[in-house]
Design a protein around this nucleic acid. Structure first.
Lengths: 234, 234
DNA sequence: AAATTTTTTAATGCATACGTAATTTTTAGG
DNA sequence: CCTAAAAATTACGTATGCATTAAAAAATTT
């Protein structure tokens, strides 16, 4: 579900900084609090609490909560507060199944667009960064570059809708990914996949691009679901 | 995207009818007005107008608008009102690409669940209804049964998330589908596809189920996009 | 007449008020 | 001590009020 406007209104106009509505601030801030686990999964918070915390009235907090509920990040449970939606292993599996498909489709679309090396420069840079991070065994750096790569892939697909959708689902699992970052085996395979994918896109081999990426994500799915079941973060 | 709560709260509890919030009424009603084309694509409506029309204050209308914007049905354009989002041929193509993937995945998941004839009874009934409707050349009846079939397929996949997502996107294009219903060729091929799909699910052939359905939807995509380009409904 | 400035209008964003109903606490009874 | 009824609390749903500021209209200047 993606909206055309909600996730990130432009921040600066020609002169001065654009004014951000309280509702938008609430959306961004509550999202951040959830992703960075400052509001733990399953925890509940009254509208008035969050309003006070964010220094605004209940109205924009309510509006933000309704939007974030629609985006799957929380549940609004009248008189029990706004509850951070936990991710079960089953949820994780479902989300990754969906993301695998959508990113696979994105890879296919990107390959069909006959992109040249210039178009793929950012993606290539992200791959290089990941290699570098791997050498230094720096997981955070690797994860940052990985995120750039996946975001870039979605941009290259040319489909705004797919990009929004995947972003929405990624937000739902980002919290867990932070936990598992250091529990996963070294992502050497990942880097190989990325290289192969980029090559397939470069030679406009849509079927291969798609297959490689779907498979790439499915491996991640199985791995993460297993970790989630083992360590039970939520 | 999909929320766990927004689209349809249960309507009746053990005693009496459950009270529906004004916000929920606004969501349902505005959605209906858009899908049934009573609010034409591209038209704008002030919060106060809709509030009056629905017999409530601006507050619940605002909340509904934000949710429906997140669900992709409209745009909130401050001081220009709430605008019904038009569907361009490009949008249609994108939406059908996404739905093809997701329903294909749903078909695969359904096939993997080893369902028996009893589980598939509703789907089979829908197919029979479609055949009947075809014989009488009744398009509306056919469309209704087709909708039942697709909804049932999603239910059989066991994935709440996929079901919600597809429903969201279907809502975005339902308006167009109504227009084109009588412009399309007789959906004989469709019925064959449905039969083949159900058989594949019955024998738990996940790959086949998936391929059949994705292909089925892709044919519909090409057809509808062509119609949309030809007749320019929006 | 076109362009620019000033004035007017009014839609929105947000805070606030308040009735209602759900929840919690208290009290009474077993 | 446990259960059930009564009372108190309070979170929410919704309406309303109002300052802000974008848009429209009017007035003024080129």
């Amino acid at each position: 579900m993606g909206s055309a406007e909600n996730s990130s209104k432009g921040s600066k106009g020609s002169k001065g900084v654009e004014r951000k509505s309280h509702t938008q601030i609430a959306i961004d801030e509550i999202k951040r609090l959830i992703i960075e686990n400052e509001l733990p999964a399953g925890s509940s918070h009254l509208e008035s609490e969050l309003a006070e915390k964010l220094g605004m009235s209940r109205t924009p907090v309510r509006e933000a909560a309704l939007i974030l509920e629609t985006l799957g990040l929380l549940w609004v449970r009248p008189r029990h507060g706004i509850q951070v939606r936990p991710i079960t292993p089953g949820d994780m599996n479902e989300i990754y199944l969906i993301v695998s498909e959508l990113e696979g489709l994105a890879a296919q679309l990107a390959a069909e667009r006959k992109l040249d090396d210039a178009d793929l420069a950012t993606a290539q840079k992200a791959i290089d960064d990941m290699d570098l991070a791997l050498e230094h065994d720096n997981r955070e750096q690797w994860a940052a570059a990985d995120e750039v790569f996946h975001r870039e892939l979605l941009r290259l697909s040319g489909s705004e809708r797919i990009a929004k959708l995947v972003e929405t689902y990624n937000n739902q699992v980002k919290r867990i990914r932070n936990y598992t970052l250091h529990l996963r085996p070294s992502p050497v395979q990942s880097n190989e996949d990325h290289c192969k994918l980029l090559k397939a896109i470069r030679r406009s081999d849509a079927a291969a691009a798609r297959a490689i990426h779907t498979e790439h994500r499915n491996r991640a799915r199985i791995l993460l679901v297993a970790l989630l079941e083992k360590y039970k973060f939520n």
